[in-house]
């Protein structure tokens, strides 16, 4: 560690900025500008001794192209800021950032978007369908965000601790276990939620309307599965509503 590294880096300020890391998302640098904003507090020590060049160069590099899962961006922010403090050559810092995009994106997508989020939302759906109402929604917000904030904080601290050797952090057993468990847990929770919400939403349908509901669902699912490259849930919903409105209007 160089003598420019403070004993207590401003990780709290960086964490707060990381909550808006995608605020200026664009098609060229993607999360780059947000990453630069988040990293900047960790780079201020580089200005010590009137050496503004190192600081400005590091800030400029921090805002270059970056794209990964937003909750894990802290890992790259911490690692590159530490690498700048340790005086790694600029090309090596750039390579480190580039190398982290893929693994952090893939890990975050599996762990959060395809795991933790649908798992907690599926459990909330089960709760609502079983009549828990508002407490189920509040429970979802609390439980989801405990995991969310913990992941962001862990990522930032791990990045700062390991610097250029950040790959070590990605091999942590707890992270590996969580990734392995989140998929099956999500499948079980959402699988259980689907029949329960079907009953919750179709409570007002009786007699032939229940048959019509089953037929519409089956036909919709078949179409979405068969034409999955072209048809989305939104398009299917709009087409079905338009057809239903037309049929209802024409029905004598």
């Amino acid at each position: 560690m160089s003598d420019t590294t403070r004993a207590r880096p401003p990780l709290g300020r960086t964490l707060l900025r990381l909550f808006t890391v995608q605020g200026s998302w664009d098609y060229e640098r993607m999360q780059g500008v947000g990453m630069g904003v988040a990293e900047e507090p960790l780079l201020r020590d580089l200005r010590r001794g009137g050496n503004g060049t190192a600081y400005h160069s590091a800030v400029a590099r921090g805002a270059h192209f970056f794209n990964a899962h937003p909750y894990l961006c802290g890992l790259a922010v911490g690692a590159t800021a530490r690498a700048e403090h340790e005086g790694l050559p600029p090309e090596q810092v750039e390579r480190l950032r580039t190398a982290l995009c893929g693994p952090l994106g893939s890990l975050g997508d599996r762990l959060v978007w395809a795991g933790w989020l649908p798992l907690t939302s599926g459990l909330a759906l089960v709760g609502v369908a079983l009549g828990l109402g508002l407490p189920a929604i509040l429970g979802f917000l609390c439980v989801y965000n405990v995991g969310h904030v913990a992941l962001r904080w862990w990522a930032l601290r791990a990045g700062w601790r390991y610097g250029a050797r950040v790959a070590v952090a990605l091999r942590e057993p707890l992270l590996q276990r969580a990734t392995a468990i989140s998929g099956p847990a999500m499948a079980l929770a959402v699988g259980a939620a689907l029949p329960l919400v079907a009953r919750f939403l179709s409570g007002d349908f009786h007699g032939p309307w229940r048959v019509a509901f089953a037929a519409v669902t089956a036909a919709g699912f078949g179409l979405l599965w068969w034409r999955r490259q072209a048809l989305t849930g939104l398009r299917l919903g709009l087409v079905m509503l338009a057809l239903a409105a037309l049929a209802g209007w024409l029905w004598p």
Partner: peptide, 11 residues
């Protein structure tokens, strides 16, 4: 029926 059916199919 169309709204609930489409939502369940999409989900």
């Amino acid at each position: 029926v169309a709204a609930v059916g489409a939502a369940l199919a999409a989900g």
